[in-house]
Design a protein around this nucleic acid. Sequence first.
DNA 1: TATTACTTTATAATCGTTATAATTAGTCTA
DNA 2: TAGACTAATTATAACGATTATAAAGTAATA
Lengths: 141, 141
Amino acid sequence: MSSAKINAAIDNLKEAGVRITPQRHAILEHLIQSMSHPTADEIYKALEGKFPNMSVATVYNNLRVFKEAGLVKELTYGDSSSRFDCVTTDHYHIICDSCGKIVDFHYPGLDEVESLAESVTGFEVGRHRMEIYGVCPDCKR
Amino acid sequence: MSSAKINAAIDNLKEAGVRITPQRHAILEHLIQSMSHPTADEIYKALEGKFPNMSVATVYNNLRVFKEAGLVKELTYGDSSSRFDCVTTDHYHIICDSCGKIVDFHYPGLDEVESLAESVTGFEVGRHRMEIYGVCPDCKR
DNA sequence: TATTACTTTATAATCGTTATAATTAGTCTA
DNA sequence: TAGACTAATTATAACGATTATAAAGTAATA
Ligand SMILES: [Mn+2]
Ligand SMILES: [Mn+2]
Ligand SMILES: [Zn+2]
Ligand SMILES: [Zn+2]
Protein backbone atom coordinates (compact mmCIF):
# COMPACT_ATOMS: atom_id res chain seq x y z
CA MET A 1 0.00 0.00 0.00
CA SER A 2 1.42 3.32 -1.04
CA SER A 3 -0.11 5.22 1.89
CA ALA A 4 2.36 3.49 4.15
CA LYS A 5 5.17 4.77 2.01
CA ILE A 6 3.72 8.27 2.05
CA ASN A 7 3.49 8.19 5.83
CA ALA A 8 7.04 6.97 6.13
CA ALA A 9 8.23 9.76 3.85
CA ILE A 10 6.32 12.35 5.86
CA ASP A 11 7.74 11.07 9.13
CA ASN A 12 11.17 11.27 7.58
CA LEU A 13 10.62 14.90 6.63
CA LYS A 14 9.17 15.81 10.01
CA GLU A 15 12.20 14.40 11.73
CA ALA A 16 14.38 16.53 9.51
CA GLY A 17 12.38 19.56 10.63
CA VAL A 18 10.61 20.08 7.30
CA ARG A 19 7.07 21.43 7.51
CA ILE A 20 4.43 19.40 5.76
CA THR A 21 2.43 21.84 3.70
CA PRO A 22 -0.54 20.78 1.57
CA GLN A 23 1.59 21.33 -1.53
CA ARG A 24 4.40 19.19 -0.18
CA HIS A 25 2.00 16.45 0.74
CA ALA A 26 0.42 16.48 -2.69
CA ILE A 27 3.71 16.45 -4.56
CA LEU A 28 4.97 13.59 -2.46
CA GLU A 29 1.71 11.69 -2.86
CA HIS A 30 1.77 12.14 -6.60
CA LEU A 31 5.36 10.98 -6.86
CA ILE A 32 4.70 7.87 -4.84
CA GLN A 33 1.33 6.94 -6.29
CA SER A 34 2.20 7.60 -9.91
CA MET A 35 4.73 4.79 -9.80
CA SER A 36 6.57 6.53 -12.60
CA HIS A 37 9.36 9.01 -13.18
CA PRO A 38 7.58 12.31 -13.71
CA THR A 39 9.09 15.64 -14.66
CA ALA A 40 8.55 18.71 -12.50
CA ASP A 41 6.15 20.02 -15.09
CA GLU A 42 4.16 16.79 -15.16
CA ILE A 43 3.74 17.01 -11.40
CA TYR A 44 2.77 20.66 -11.72
CA LYS A 45 0.12 19.88 -14.31
CA ALA A 46 -1.17 16.84 -12.44
CA LEU A 47 -1.82 18.99 -9.39
CA GLU A 48 -3.20 22.12 -10.98
CA GLY A 49 -6.76 20.87 -10.45
CA LYS A 50 -6.23 20.64 -6.71
CA PHE A 51 -3.89 23.66 -6.46
CA PRO A 52 -4.85 26.14 -9.17
CA ASN A 53 -2.49 28.76 -7.78
CA MET A 54 0.54 26.63 -7.12
CA SER A 55 3.71 27.99 -8.67
CA VAL A 56 5.99 25.80 -10.71
CA ALA A 57 8.78 27.11 -8.50
CA THR A 58 7.09 25.38 -5.57
CA VAL A 59 7.37 22.08 -7.36
CA TYR A 60 11.05 22.62 -8.07
CA ASN A 61 11.75 23.91 -4.57
CA ASN A 62 10.12 20.95 -2.92
CA LEU A 63 11.69 18.39 -5.21
CA ARG A 64 14.99 19.85 -4.06
CA VAL A 65 13.91 19.56 -0.43
CA PHE A 66 12.93 15.93 -0.97
CA LYS A 67 16.20 15.25 -2.71
CA GLU A 68 18.18 16.71 0.16
CA ALA A 69 16.19 14.53 2.55
CA GLY A 70 17.10 11.49 0.45
CA LEU A 71 13.50 10.78 -0.52
CA VAL A 72 13.84 11.23 -4.24
CA LYS A 73 16.53 10.97 -6.85
CA GLU A 74 16.85 13.23 -9.84
CA LEU A 75 17.43 11.62 -13.21
CA THR A 76 19.07 14.05 -15.59
CA TYR A 77 19.15 13.91 -19.35
CA GLY A 78 20.96 16.12 -21.74
CA ASP A 79 18.21 17.29 -23.99
CA SER A 80 15.04 17.38 -21.97
CA SER A 81 13.90 17.96 -18.41
CA SER A 82 14.87 16.06 -15.29
CA ARG A 83 12.75 13.21 -14.03
CA PHE A 84 12.25 12.29 -10.41
CA ASP A 85 12.31 8.84 -8.88
CA CYS A 86 10.96 8.11 -5.40
CA VAL A 87 12.50 4.65 -5.43
CA THR A 88 15.85 5.38 -3.86
CA THR A 89 17.19 1.87 -3.65
CA ASP A 90 19.80 1.07 -6.27
CA HIS A 91 18.47 0.24 -9.68
CA TYR A 92 19.05 1.06 -13.31
CA HIS A 93 16.72 2.25 -16.03
CA ILE A 94 15.95 1.13 -19.52
CA ILE A 95 14.49 3.84 -21.72
CA CYS A 96 12.46 3.54 -24.90
CA ASP A 97 13.92 5.59 -27.75
CA SER A 98 10.53 5.70 -29.38
CA CYS A 99 8.03 6.65 -26.65
CA GLY A 100 10.31 7.69 -23.79
CA LYS A 101 9.01 5.13 -21.34
CA ILE A 102 11.36 4.44 -18.43
CA VAL A 103 11.37 1.02 -16.81
CA ASP A 104 13.21 0.02 -13.66
CA PHE A 105 15.75 -2.69 -14.06
CA HIS A 106 17.74 -4.44 -11.36
CA TYR A 107 21.23 -5.68 -11.87
CA PRO A 108 23.70 -6.58 -9.19
CA GLY A 109 26.85 -4.61 -8.95
CA LEU A 110 28.99 -3.09 -11.54
CA ASP A 111 31.56 -3.04 -8.76
CA GLU A 112 33.99 -4.69 -11.08
CA VAL A 113 33.84 -1.82 -13.55
CA GLU A 114 34.28 0.66 -10.74
CA SER A 115 37.33 -1.08 -9.31
CA LEU A 116 38.93 -1.50 -12.71
CA ALA A 117 38.40 2.16 -13.48
CA GLU A 118 39.88 3.02 -10.13
CA SER A 119 43.05 1.04 -10.71
CA VAL A 120 43.48 2.16 -14.31
CA THR A 121 42.84 5.87 -13.83
CA GLY A 122 43.93 6.52 -10.27
CA PHE A 123 40.57 8.10 -9.49
CA GLU A 124 38.88 7.47 -6.21
CA VAL A 125 35.57 6.17 -7.46
CA GLY A 126 32.36 7.23 -5.80
CA ARG A 127 29.50 6.12 -8.01
CA HIS A 128 28.48 5.36 -11.52
CA ARG A 129 25.60 5.90 -13.83
CA MET A 130 24.23 3.49 -16.36
CA GLU A 131 21.19 3.42 -18.58
CA ILE A 132 20.12 1.17 -21.39
CA TYR A 133 18.29 2.43 -24.45
CA GLY A 134 16.12 0.49 -26.83
CA VAL A 135 12.58 -0.02 -28.05
CA CYS A 136 9.91 -1.13 -25.62
CA PRO A 137 7.53 -4.04 -26.28
CA ASP A 138 4.60 -1.70 -27.02
CA CYS A 139 6.57 0.26 -29.59
CA LYS A 140 7.88 -2.90 -31.24
CA ARG A 141 4.15 -3.59 -31.83
CA MET B 1 50.36 12.82 -35.48
CA SER B 2 47.09 14.66 -35.25
CA SER B 3 47.39 16.26 -38.69
CA ALA B 4 46.79 12.83 -40.18
CA LYS B 5 43.59 12.58 -38.23
CA ILE B 6 42.54 16.02 -39.35
CA ASN B 7 43.16 15.13 -42.97
CA ALA B 8 41.22 11.92 -42.62
CA ALA B 9 38.33 13.80 -41.09
CA ILE B 10 38.40 16.37 -43.87
CA ASP B 11 38.43 13.67 -46.54
CA ASN B 12 35.51 12.08 -44.80
CA LEU B 13 33.56 15.32 -44.92
CA LYS B 14 34.45 16.03 -48.53
CA GLU B 15 33.18 12.63 -49.55
CA ALA B 16 29.94 13.40 -47.80
CA GLY B 17 29.69 16.59 -49.86
CA VAL B 18 30.39 18.95 -46.96
CA ARG B 19 32.30 22.10 -47.82
CA ILE B 20 35.45 22.74 -45.85
CA THR B 21 35.25 26.31 -44.70
CA PRO B 22 37.95 27.97 -42.61
CA GLN B 23 35.64 27.85 -39.61
CA ARG B 24 34.96 24.16 -40.05
CA HIS B 25 38.63 23.42 -40.43
CA ALA B 26 39.46 25.34 -37.27
CA ILE B 27 36.73 23.73 -35.18
CA LEU B 28 37.79 20.30 -36.33
CA GLU B 29 41.43 21.07 -35.71
CA HIS B 30 40.71 22.35 -32.24
CA LEU B 31 38.65 19.29 -31.38
CA ILE B 32 41.34 16.90 -32.54
CA GLN B 33 44.36 18.74 -31.18
CA SER B 34 42.89 19.61 -27.81
CA MET B 35 42.70 15.91 -26.97
CA SER B 36 39.91 16.77 -24.57
CA HIS B 37 36.13 16.97 -24.45
CA PRO B 38 35.37 20.64 -24.97
CA THR B 39 32.01 22.37 -24.82
CA ALA B 40 30.72 24.38 -27.76
CA ASP B 41 31.47 27.53 -25.84
CA GLU B 42 35.03 26.46 -25.07
CA ILE B 43 35.62 25.91 -28.77
CA TYR B 44 34.03 29.25 -29.52
CA LYS B 45 36.28 31.05 -27.05
CA ALA B 46 39.39 29.17 -28.15
CA LEU B 47 38.87 30.36 -31.72
CA GLU B 48 37.79 33.93 -31.16
CA GLY B 49 41.36 35.12 -31.63
CA LYS B 50 41.49 33.65 -35.11
CA PHE B 51 37.84 34.29 -35.97
CA PRO B 52 36.72 37.41 -34.12
CA ASN B 53 33.39 37.48 -35.94
CA MET B 54 32.47 33.83 -35.74
CA SER B 55 29.02 33.23 -34.37
CA VAL B 56 28.42 30.72 -31.62
CA ALA B 57 25.70 29.33 -33.87
CA THR B 58 28.41 28.38 -36.35
CA VAL B 59 30.07 26.25 -33.70
CA TYR B 60 26.82 24.51 -32.84
CA ASN B 61 25.85 24.10 -36.49
CA ASN B 62 29.14 22.54 -37.40
CA LEU B 63 29.29 20.27 -34.39
CA ARG B 64 25.95 18.95 -35.60
CA VAL B 65 27.36 18.48 -39.09
CA PHE B 66 30.33 16.59 -37.68
CA LYS B 67 28.04 14.49 -35.53
CA GLU B 68 25.92 13.55 -38.53
CA ALA B 69 29.07 12.58 -40.40
CA GLY B 70 30.05 10.35 -37.50
CA LEU B 71 33.16 12.35 -36.70
CA VAL B 72 32.22 13.42 -33.21
CA LYS B 73 30.02 12.22 -30.41
CA GLU B 74 28.06 14.46 -28.11
CA LEU B 75 28.25 13.80 -24.40
CA THR B 76 25.23 15.16 -22.60
CA TYR B 77 24.90 16.01 -18.95
CA GLY B 78 21.85 17.10 -17.08
CA ASP B 79 22.98 20.30 -15.50
CA SER B 80 25.58 21.82 -17.76
CA SER B 81 26.44 22.01 -21.43
CA SER B 82 27.22 19.18 -23.82
CA ARG B 83 30.78 18.13 -24.46
CA PHE B 84 32.12 16.81 -27.73
CA ASP B 85 34.42 13.86 -28.27
CA CYS B 86 36.27 13.27 -31.51
CA VAL B 87 37.23 9.77 -30.43
CA THR B 88 34.36 7.80 -31.84
CA THR B 89 35.55 4.33 -30.98
CA ASP B 90 33.75 2.76 -28.02
CA HIS B 91 34.94 3.89 -24.65
CA TYR B 92 33.60 5.09 -21.33
CA HIS B 93 34.39 8.14 -19.26
CA ILE B 94 35.36 8.73 -15.67
CA ILE B 95 34.58 12.20 -14.42
CA CYS B 96 36.02 14.10 -11.49
CA ASP B 97 33.33 15.44 -9.16
CA SER B 98 35.72 18.09 -7.95
CA CYS B 99 37.31 19.63 -11.05
CA GLY B 100 35.19 18.21 -13.86
CA LYS B 101 38.05 16.49 -15.64
CA ILE B 102 36.94 13.76 -18.03
CA VAL B 103 39.23 10.81 -18.68
CA ASP B 104 38.75 8.08 -21.26
CA PHE B 105 38.44 4.62 -19.93
CA HIS B 106 38.25 1.37 -21.85
CA TYR B 107 36.26 -1.59 -20.72
CA PRO B 108 35.15 -4.50 -22.80
CA GLY B 109 31.50 -5.10 -23.29
CA LEU B 110 28.66 -4.63 -20.97
CA ASP B 111 26.91 -6.94 -23.41
CA GLU B 112 25.84 -9.07 -20.52
CA VAL B 113 23.92 -6.22 -18.92
CA GLU B 114 22.30 -5.43 -22.22
CA SER B 115 21.16 -8.97 -22.84
CA LEU B 116 19.88 -9.39 -19.31
CA ALA B 117 17.91 -6.16 -19.58
CA GLU B 118 16.54 -7.34 -22.90
CA SER B 119 15.28 -10.62 -21.51
CA VAL B 120 13.91 -9.11 -18.30
CA THR B 121 12.11 -6.13 -19.81
CA GLY B 122 11.20 -7.30 -23.30
CA PHE B 123 12.87 -4.24 -24.79
CA GLU B 124 14.91 -4.51 -27.95
CA VAL B 125 18.16 -3.06 -26.71
CA GLY B 126 20.15 -0.72 -28.90
CA ARG B 127 22.83 0.84 -26.77
CA HIS B 128 23.76 1.86 -23.28
CA ARG B 129 25.45 4.66 -21.49
CA MET B 130 27.78 4.43 -18.56
CA GLU B 131 29.97 6.87 -16.69
CA ILE B 132 31.92 6.63 -13.52
CA TYR B 133 32.25 9.50 -11.08
CA GLY B 134 34.91 10.08 -8.48
CA VAL B 135 37.84 12.25 -7.51
CA CYS B 136 40.85 12.48 -9.80
CA PRO B 137 44.45 12.01 -8.62
CA ASP B 138 45.17 15.75 -8.81
CA CYS B 139 42.18 16.64 -6.67
CA LYS B 140 43.01 13.94 -4.14
CA ARG B 141 46.23 15.97 -3.73
C1' DT C 1 -0.95 38.70 20.48
C1' DA C 2 3.52 39.92 18.64
C1' DT C 3 7.64 38.13 16.74
C1' DT C 4 9.95 35.28 13.90
C1' DA C 5 11.18 32.04 10.48
C1' DC C 6 9.60 29.38 6.79
C1' DT C 7 6.83 28.77 2.54
C1' DT C 8 4.43 30.00 -1.40
C1' DT C 9 3.47 32.83 -5.20
C1' DA C 10 4.23 35.74 -9.22
C1' DT C 11 7.48 37.27 -12.00
C1' DA C 12 11.88 38.18 -13.94
C1' DA C 13 16.32 36.45 -15.04
C1' DT C 14 19.56 33.06 -16.59
C1' DC C 15 21.77 29.60 -19.47
C1' DG C 16 22.45 26.53 -23.23
C1' DT C 17 20.74 25.85 -27.51
C1' DT C 18 18.05 26.49 -31.79
C1' DA C 19 15.45 29.28 -35.30
C1' DT C 20 15.24 33.14 -38.38
C1' DA C 21 16.51 36.18 -41.83
C1' DA C 22 19.94 38.79 -44.05
C1' DT C 23 24.58 38.72 -45.87
C1' DT C 24 28.56 36.52 -47.64
C1' DA C 25 31.13 33.13 -49.97
C1' DG C 26 31.67 28.89 -52.84
C1' DT C 27 30.53 26.33 -56.85
C1' DC C 28 28.70 25.60 -61.34
C1' DT C 29 27.60 26.68 -65.91
C1' DA C 30 27.46 29.51 -70.11
C1' DT D 1 35.00 35.66 -66.10
C1' DA D 2 29.98 36.96 -65.29
C1' DG D 3 25.86 35.43 -63.66
C1' DA D 4 23.10 32.21 -61.23
C1' DC D 5 22.54 29.06 -57.79
C1' DT D 6 23.45 26.97 -53.38
C1' DA D 7 25.41 26.56 -48.98
C1' DA D 8 27.48 28.70 -44.90
C1' DT D 9 28.00 32.36 -41.75
C1' DT D 10 26.50 36.01 -38.99
C1' DA D 11 23.65 38.71 -35.82
C1' DT D 12 19.91 38.44 -33.33
C1' DA D 13 15.71 36.76 -31.46
C1' DA D 14 13.30 32.98 -29.47
C1' DC D 15 12.92 28.94 -26.70
C1' DG D 16 12.47 25.73 -22.65
C1' DA D 17 14.04 24.33 -18.27
C1' DT D 18 15.42 26.00 -14.18
C1' DT D 19 16.65 29.41 -10.63
C1' DA D 20 16.54 33.99 -8.30
C1' DT D 21 13.98 37.68 -6.33
C1' DA D 22 10.78 40.01 -3.67
C1' DA D 23 6.31 40.36 -1.78
C1' DA D 24 2.63 38.13 0.62
C1' DG D 25 0.92 34.33 3.30
C1' DT D 26 1.25 30.78 6.92
C1' DA D 27 2.80 28.33 10.80
C1' DA D 28 5.57 27.96 15.07
C1' DT D 29 7.17 30.34 19.08
C1' DA D 30 7.31 33.41 22.99
MN1 LIG E 1 13.37 4.11 -11.20
MN1 LIG F 1 36.34 10.35 -24.69
ZN1 LIG G 1 8.08 2.70 -26.35
ZN1 LIG H 1 39.82 16.62 -10.30
